[in-house]
């Protein structure tokens, strides 16, 4: 099955301020009682979007009208740390986001996101602040993540970005979901299985 070749992602962006944004924050565990991922978008970042005591909407950027059309998240370092729950990138995707720009990612979150076709690019601390500030000042501007040139373009110019080469290649060649390739190697897998001396 041929998948979309992801060469760039573009859209408006929203800064989600903070480092070490963990998957419990992206999707609180109590919303994981589901047998499909379909309804998760609604609960993305629930506990920062709604005041736990009053249930009222908070002043978080994700609630801000100015960022209503955002489809790219800008955040700090170690984004997506914590549990391996794919519910986190799934919630982000179901809420309409197509890419993340951050200073760094937890391993599992990064892998999960790639496999869903959500590019997660790294930018330096200084460039993250630059992008966030630009977006705060003009939320309507278009942000373009160019995976060929490895830059993030915005109104005032561009900043360099980075991504592990294997994942970048997988996105650009449309191989970000590896299932078919894994299936195609079934004979080789069977040979390895036969060589193992357990189970």
């Amino acid at each position: 099955m041929a998948l979309e070749k992801i060469l760039r992602r573009s859209g408006k962006a929203v800064p989600v301020v903070g480092d070490d944004i963990d998957t419990d924050r992206i999707i609180p565990a109590r919303f994981m009682k589901c047998v499909t991922f379909d309804g998760l978008g609604e609960y993305m970042f629930y506990d920062v979007r709604f005041d736990p005591d009053t249930g009222k909407k908070t002043a978080h950027n994700l609630n801000d009208e100015r960022f209503k059309e955002a489809s790219i998240i800008i955040s700090g370092s170690n984004f997506g740390c914590g549990s391996s729950r794919e519910h986190a990138p799934q919630a982000i995707a179901k809420a309409g986001f197509v890419a993340v720009i951050a200073e760094g990612y937890a391993e599992i979150f990064f892998g999960n996101s790639t496999q869903l076709g959500i590019p997660c690019v790294n930018v330096s601390h200084a460039d993250r602040l630059k992008l966030s500030q630009a977006v705060e000042e003009d939320p309507a501007q278009e942000i373009i993540i160019d995976l060929e040139k490895m830059v993030v373009r915005y109104g005032a110019g561009e900043v360099p970005c980075a991504m592990r080469e294997a994942n970048r290649q997988a996105l650009m060649s449309g191989d970000w979901d590896p299932l078919q390739e894994l299936i195609d190697n079934a004979d080789k897998a069977d040979a390895v299985a036969a060589s193992l001396n357990y189970i």
Binding site: A166, D175, E181, A189, L196
Partner: peptide, 29 residues
């Protein structure tokens, strides 16, 4: 090395998994 099945097109490895454990939260999907 003992579990490597193949090198994939993007340069990563296809790894054989000896034992797979599942629980109710991350498996139904």
């Amino acid at each position: 090395d003992a579990h490597t099945v193949a090198e994939l097109s993007d340069g990563s490895t296809q790894l054989f998994i000896g034992a797979h454990l599942i629980h109710e939260v991350t498996s139904p999907q």
